[in-house]
Design a binder for these strands. Structure first.
Lengths: 136, 136
DNA sequence: TTTCTTTTGCAACAACGTTGCTTTTTTATA
DNA sequence: TATAAAAAAGCAACGTTGTTGCAAAAGAAA
């Protein structure tokens, strides 16, 4: 099973909730917010478990967070380069203003930004809002 | 008074709370989260008033929101080009990972992003995380 | 000043997120 | 495969954040 090996590879014990939540990320195309997961998991798990599982996955580099301007952080699967305590999500994110799906555009890398003197750049987040290919 | 005319120019009645909150934005350099405002306004206003005032300011194009990955939207003053229902904040934002101040870098415009076929870009948000000039 | 309109504050509530602790599940090991 | 140790889940309780309806207060207009 795909989920089992992914969990084991990251040094996590294999539990029902972790498998289920990971499955949701693997089968869906878009990013998921905490609320989406609670709904899709079908009242099967406690809210607390969902919070803790998401946190664990972020810590292990299995998923990453996507910033938003509406106070609802979304999460999406990381590609292979991520590992514990070290995210490498150099791609940009796209939010469809019609269907509200959030996509990781893995092939579009974040641009180089020229900052004013004195500022040192670390991580760059780019979120593009617009209309996705399914909603045109 | 600066605040009064700014409010009037935007068709808003001049009230104590609006003046005070606007003042906070005018005198500070960084962006403010709802919580910051509640603290700085010194228990003078009801939480609800702060929420409603911020919403009103956003609607009128006086302030704009800055997305974040930590569930705490920040707000900052718009430049003159913004108006009701029409924000023009084409600048990028910078979050210092040491002092946690969020700056609007008004002179750095958002880059052009090449999206995959089928995606139509609307607004582009760029948030750079790093070390600011005061914390180096 | 008086009237009308807008905004504020309050109360109540709903959603979101966290923590400590007990029970259950998973893992490791015999 | 049975058992002990470790890890995770569930539960309850709580604090914070954000929303709504309505009465009281403040601001605008005349």
């Amino acid at each position: 099973m795909q989920t089992d090996s992914l969990l084991k590879r990251n040094g996590l014990s294999v539990t029902e909730s972790r498998k289920k939540i990971l499955q949701l990320f693997l089968e869906g195309s878009g990013a998921l917010a905490h609320g989406d997961i609670e709904k899709k998991a079908g009242e099967k798990f406690d809210r607390v478990t969902v919070y803790r599982t998401l946190q664990t996955f972020v810590d292990k580099g299995i998923i990453h967070t996507i910033p938003s301007a509406d106070n609802s952080i979304r999460y999406a699967l990381c590609k292979d380069e991520c590992s514990e305590g070290h995210h490498h999500d150099h791609h940009i994110h796209f939010e469809c203003s019609i269907c509200h799906t959030t996509y990781c555009l893995d092939d579009v890398v974040t641009p180089q930004i020229n900052l004013p003197k004195g500022y040192v750049a670390g991580h760059v987040e780019v979120v593009v809002e617009g209309v996705c290919k399914n909603c045109k």
